[in-house]
Amino acid sequence: MSKTVVNVANLDVRFGAAHVLQDVSFSLSAGTTVGVVGESGSGKSTLAKALVGTVPAAAGEIWVDGLDVRHATRSELARYRRRTQMIPQDPFSSLSPRRTIGQTLAEAIEPGRGRVRPHQDRIVDWLERVGLEGAMMDRFPHEFSGGQRQRVAIARGLILNPTMVIADEITSALDVSVQAQILELLAEIQDSLDLTMMFISHNLAVVQRVSDEVLVLYRGVVVERGPVEQIFTDPQHWYTRSLLEADPGSPGFSLDALPMASVTTPTQ
C-alpha cells in the first residue's frame, strides 16, 4: 500500500445558506488518479478549490501531503500551493496574452521576480517534455493553437515537480483529436513522475480513460465512490446509472421516451 497523499474527511462547504459540499470524504494514495464526475453545480470545482484552500470549509478535515490545509498558516499555504498545482480549464484565458511562454513559465518557478534567463534550461526541458520546442519560449500565446496552449499550461503546472495536480475540465475546451493527445501526454507524464492527480470532468468517457478511482458528486454529496471498473460496469446509485445512460456512447442511451423536464433548478 503506497503512501496516502490526500485525506478528506466529512468536508462541508457553504456559500451563505447554500450547502455546496456536504460530508465529503475520500482519500487518495500517491500516484493514483481520482476522477470527479457530476453535473454543473454539483460541487466539482468547489471541491478542487477547497483542496487548495481558496474556498473556506465550514467543517471537516483536509489533509494533503501531511499538511492540515484548513488550519495552515499563510506561508504554509503558499508553500503548499506550489506543491499542489491546478491546471485550469480554458487555454485561451489561462495564459497572459502580453507575456511570452518563457516568462509565463519563469513566473511559476520564481513568482516574485520571474526572471527567464537563470531558468532557461528548465523551461526548455519542460517545453520539450510536453511536446513543444524549446525555441517557442520567446513566443506569445496568440501564436499557439488551443492544444499547444494547454500543453504550456500543463508545463506550468508541472515545472515545480508538484506532489499533486488538480486538472479541472482541462480538455473540455479542446477538439477531440487534441483532447486525445493531451490525455496521452498526461498519462505519460504521470507514469514518469508518480503524480497524484484529481481529474475533474463532466465527460464520463474521458474520466473512465484516465482514472483509477471515481467520485460521483450529486448536489454536493458524494453519492458513489469506488474503483473505476466498478463505477462504470456496476453502478450502485441511481444517479450514477442515469449519468451513464445519458451518455450517447452507452448502450442504454435512447431518444425514444421524452422524460418530463427534470425539475432541477439551478443551485442557489
Binding site: 481558496t54 500551493r81 506550489r82 498545482q85 485550469p88 484565458s93 489561462s94 502580453r98 507575456r99 513568482p111
Partner: peptide, 27 residues
C-alpha cells in the same frame, strides 16, 4: 481571467500581478 487566478495560486505578489498581467492588458 484565469491567468490572474493562476498567478495568485502560484504565489505571485499582488503588485507584480498588477505590473505584469493587469497593466499591459489594458493598454
Amino acid at each position: 481571467r484565469q491567468y490572474i487566478t493562476t498567478a495568485r495560486l502560484l504565489g505571485v505578489p499582488g503588485y507584480r500581478i498588477a505590473i505584469r498581467h493587469v497593466l499591459p492588458n489594458m493598454a
